[in-house]
Computed example of a mutant assay.
Amino acid sequence: MQKHVIFDMDGVLVDSEPIHMQILGEVLQEMGVNLTREYHFTLVGMGALMMWEKLKKDFGLEGKPADLLEAHKAYFFSVIGDRQIPKTEGVSELLCRLKDSGYNLSLGSSSPVKLIDIFMEKAGLGRYFDHMVSSEHVARGKPFPDIFLKVAGLYDISPDAFVVIEDSRNGVKAARAAGMQCIGYRNANSGQQDLSAADLIIDDFRELTTTKMNMFYCVNE
């Protein structure tokens, strides 16, 4: 059978959660809210509009969540060009191993399309992926399964042909809701995420040998 892997972006392909926290903190500070690391970790992997709905509710912010999101995006894109976005350690080698072994690779992220394009250009990883799907392409972001089901639809194959790699509780929930197997990647910068629903949890991409990846597909054959 064909082998498909969907990568989350933030915290999996690029180690970007610290910069997300920094910029969101700058936006919220202008609104009189001090963002803590612990609170930020509850937002990791969440769809952007859902995040601002939560922020508005939790902090009593003025304005509509959609307008707050647009202001956040405008500020983010005005400053992101000067910020460094490091690739996650070992991810380039993993992508090469999978491509060389005939895997079909896609990206499924809660981030907006423009940000995906920027991060993939900065990291030089976009060439590995057949499809790059954003929460902007679907009705609901993670923890709902829409992003991953959209990827399966683009290939026109069953969701059970996919393995998802995620670093957040919201992402793992989305993968399982889509009927896909999931590898949880522990990234310290994503906080102590509950990845217990994943089929496999790793701390280092070097653990994902081709032999170990192939085991996921033997189950379905």
Rank of each mutant, 00 (worst) to 15 (best):
M1H: 14
Q2D: 14
I6Y: 05
D8M: 03
M9Q: 11
V12G: 01
S16L: 06
E17W: 05
P18E: 15
M21T: 09
I23E: 07
L24G: 12
L28S: 14
E30H: 08
E30R: 09
L35P: 13
T36N: 05
R37P: 11
Y39I: 10
T42G: 12
G45Y: 00
E53Q: 10
G60K: 06
L61Y: 04
K64A: 12
P65G: 10
P65N: 09
D67Q: 02
K73E: 06
Y75T: 02
I80T: 12
I85G: 03
K87Q: 05
V91D: 00
L95C: 06
C96Y: 10
C96V: 14
R97F: 06
L98G: 00
K99M: 07
Y103N: 11
N104H: 13
L105H: 13
L107S: 07
G108S: 14
P112V: 15
V113D: 14
V113M: 13
I116A: 03
D117P: 01
G124K: 11
R127A: 07
Y128I: 09
F129Y: 01
D130Q: 08
V133W: 00
S135A: 12
S135Q: 04
H137D: 10
V138M: 11
G141D: 06
D146H: 03
V151W: 09
L154E: 14
D156L: 09
S158T: 14
A161T: 11
F162M: 06
V163D: 03
V164D: 00
S168V: 10
R169A: 15
N170I: 03
G171A: 11
R176E: 10
A178L: 15
Y185V: 02
A188F: 14
S190A: 09
D194N: 12
A198S: 02
A198Y: 00
I202A: 00
F205H: 00
E207C: 00
T209Y: 05
T209H: 05
T210H: 08
T211N: 11
K212D: 02
N214M: 13
M215S: 15
C218V: 14
V219C: 15
N220V: 11
E221P: 11
E221V: 15
